[in-house]
Design a protein around this nucleic acid. Structure first.
Lengths: 328, 328
DNA sequence: CGCAATTTTGAATAATTATTCACTACGTGC
DNA sequence: GCACGTAGTGAATAATTATTCAAAATTGCG
C-alpha cells in the first residue's frame, strides 16, 4: 500500500466531512463525489488510519470518576484521569495504551493551549507517543518541546517512539531533541555525554520547562526497557534483586518510591527527580502490568498529574486498600 | 422520550468509549456490558444526540483552502476558514450551518484556550449558536462572555438562539447577558434602555472585550431578522429601498459596506462598529443567501477573521471576480 | 515497447448497524 | 384495584458499511 497522493487525501477529507459532520451515508457521498461506494469507504478508512479524524468523548464512566477521586486524594494529585477499559480480552496491552492515549491527548492539548506554558519537557515511551498522536493539532508556534532524557537505544539506532518530533509537529512549536541514549552503558560514558556542550545546553534548557510529561516503566519482561533491549536480562535481574519495580525518567525505584542503589540509575542521561520536583509533572501509565511501577512512581512525590487506564486503576486501588466501585 | 438518568448516561459513555476509541462492534459491546445489541445502539445514538461525542476532522478539502487564501488576501483577513459543503440537495441551509458551526467551533476553542484572552463579546444567530454547540468543552473559569447586542425580540420574549449562556457553560467562564431587544421599537425606547445603569454597565464591560464573535445577517425573507420577526415586512422593504443588504451587529449596511441612513440602525441596542474596530472580530456566515450580506459586512473593514461555508465562498468568489477552484 | 508484478477498481457478498414492531413493565388517573 | 397511556425492551428485519475477489489499470523493468 503506497502513500496516497494529495488528491486522494483531499478527497478523503471531503468524504470524511460529508460522513461525520454532514451525516451522509457512504452511498450518498459516492453519488455526490461521483465515485463508487467502495471507494468512499476506502477513503474514509484511510482518513481514519492517517489520523485525520479525531473522536473526543466528553466525560467518562462513573467508575472511572470514582477512581480519579480516590487517587487524587490518596496521592495529592492535581488532576487524575482514569481512561475507560477498552479491553476486548485478557490483558489487552494495546487497548490500555489506546485509551490512556486518547484521554491524555486531550488533556495535553488543553494544557498546551492554555496560557502561561512556554516550554514542555517530555520523556519517552509508547504511551506518551500514543497520547501525542491522539492530541488534536493546536497552534502554539512559540512553544518549546524538549527531551528530558535520552531516547536512543544502546545501539544508537533511531527510536521509533520518539515523542518530541511528533509533538513539535502537532503544536507548531519547536522541538529540541537530546541525541543520547536513555541509559549510557557506563557511568564514564554518561560523563562523556554530559561534557558535550550541546548536551549541557539542551539539559539546561530542559530544566527551564514549565511542565513535564513522562511515562512510567516497569522492570518486567514485557516492559519497555526489556522490549527495546535498553537493559540486559542480567541488568534486569540485578535491579529486581535490589527491589526495583519501576523506572521513572531512567531512575529505578522500589515499591516505596525510593531510588534503589543501582549503578544503572547513575547511567541515565537526563533530568533527575530534583530537577523536576515542584513543577507540574504529568505521568502516563497503562496496563495492569504497571501496577507496582506506577505505585512506586507516585510515591516518589514528583508526580502532580496522572493518567492511567481503568484496569490499572482497579489494580492500584486494591493494592492501596481503597474501595473499588462495583463493576458495571 | 424522557430525560435519561445518570446511569443511562454513564452506560452510554462507556459504550461510546468502547465503540469509538476501542473500535469494538456493537455486538461485542453488548456482550461485554451484558445488554442487548439494540440497546447498545440506542445508547450510542443517545450519546451522539446529547453531544457527548465530538468529531474533529483535521484539514479541509483543497478547494476550501484555495478559497481561504483568496479571501484572506482580498479582504486582509487574519484567518479565513471555508467549511466544506455538506449539502445533500439544493440550498440546504441546515447543512451550511452545521459545517460552519463545526469549523468555527474548533477555531473558537483554540482562540479561547489560548493565552491572553480574558473576555469575549458575542452577538447572536443560529450559526453562532451552532458554533458554540460544536465547540469542545474547555476550561477557562476566568473567562468573561458578554453580549454585545440585545437578543430579545421586540416583545421581550426569550431568544432561543442565545449564545452567551451556552458558551459560558462550555468554557466554564462567566456569562453576562444583555437583557434588551436586538432592536428597540423606537429610538426613544433605545435611549430608555441605555439609561438603565445595569445596561450601561454591561455595555461598558462589553467594550473591554479582547475578541468579538458575530454573525452576519441578511435582509431577505429567509434571514434571521424576518424569521424571528425582529423587523416587520414594511421595515424590511424600507431597508431594501435604502440599499441595505446586510445586518452586522444590528447595523444595516449596503453592498459597499456603508451604513444606510435608516432609523432602524439607530434602534440597535448594543455596540457599534467603532467600538469593536481594531479588536479581533470573528464573523460567521453560512449559506449562499448571505452572499451580498457577507460581502457588505467584509467591506465595513471591521471583520478580521471569517468562517463561511464552501457554497457561500463560491458565490462570493464569483461576485468579486476571483477565480474559483475547479469542482471535485 | 512489451511483459510481469503490483496496485487500484467496482461488483458481489458478508458483517455490522439502524429501525421497526410487537410486547412488557411501569406509572397514573379514575 | 383496574384500565389506560407511556416509555422501554429485544427479536426480526431493513439499511448501511466493510470485505472479498476477479478484472482492469498502472507501474517497474528488461
Amino acid at each position: 500500500m503506497g502513500e496516497p497522493d494529495d488528491w486522494t487525501t483531499y478527497l478523503a477529507i471531503r468524504a470524511a466531512w460529508l460522513s461525520f459532520v454532514g451525516g451522509c451515508t457512504q452511498g450518498e457521498i459516492a453519488s455526490r463525489l461521483d465515485i463508487s461506494p467502495a471507494k468512499v469507504h476506502r477513503l474514509i478508512a484511510y482518513a481514519q488510519r492517517a489520523g485525520h479524524i479525531r473522536f473526543h468523548i466528553e466525560g467518562r464512566p462513573l467508575e472511572c470518576l470514582e477512581y480519579e477521586e480516590t487517587f487524587a486524594r490518596a496521592f495529592g494529585l492535581n488532576h487524575c484521569i482514569v481512561a475507560p477499559d477498552l479491553g476486548t480480552g485478557v490483558q489487552d496491552e494495546g487497548a490500555a495504551i489506546r485509551s490512556v492515549g486518547a484521554a491524555a491527548g486531550n488533556l495535553l492539548a488543553q494544557v498546551l493551549a492554555s496560557s502561561g506554558i512556554r516550554q514542555i519537557g517530555v520523556g519517552m515511551g509508547r504511551t506518551l507517543k500514543a497520547a501525542v498522536a491522539a492530541m488534536p493539532r493546536i497552534s502554539r508556534e512559540d512553544l518549546s518541546i524538549v527531551s528530558i532524557s535520552g531516547s536512543l537505544t544502546s545501539r544508537l539506532s533511531a527510536n521509533p517512539y520518539d515523542v518530541v518530533q511528533l509533538l513539535a509537529e502537532r503544536s507548531g512549536g519547536e522541538g529540541y531533541y537530546l541525541p543520547v541514549p536513555y541509559l549510557a552503558t557506563t557511568v564514564a560514558e554518561k560523563e562523556m555525554f554530559l561534557q558535550q556542550p550541546s548536551v549541557q545546553e539542551l539539559l539546561a534548557r530542559a530544566r527551564r520547562s514549565d511542565t513535564f510529561v513522562v511515562g512510567i516503566g516497569s522492570i518486567s519482561d514485557d516492559g519497555h526497557l526489556r522490549r527495546m533491549n535498553l537493559i540486559s536480562r542480567d541488568e534486569q535481574r540485578a535491579l529486581q534483586k535490589l527491589g526495583a519495580v519501576g523506572d521513572l525518567m531512567g531512575r529505578f525505584i522500589d515499591i516505596d518510591g525510593a531510588a534503589v542503589p543501582a549503578v544503572l540509575s547513575e547511567q541515565a542521561v537526563g533530568l533527575g527527580f530534583e530537577e523536576v520536583r515542584g513543577a507540574r509533572v504529568l505521568a502516563l501509565s497503562g496496563g495492569v502490568s504497571k501496577t507496582a511501577a506506577t505505585l512506586s512512581a507516585l510515591r516518589t512525590g514528583v508526580i502532580t498529574d496522572l493518567v492511567i487506564d481503568e484496569a490499572l486503576a482497579k489494580s492500584l486501588a486494591s493494592e492501596i486498600g481503597a474501595k473499588t466501585p462495583q463493576p458495571a
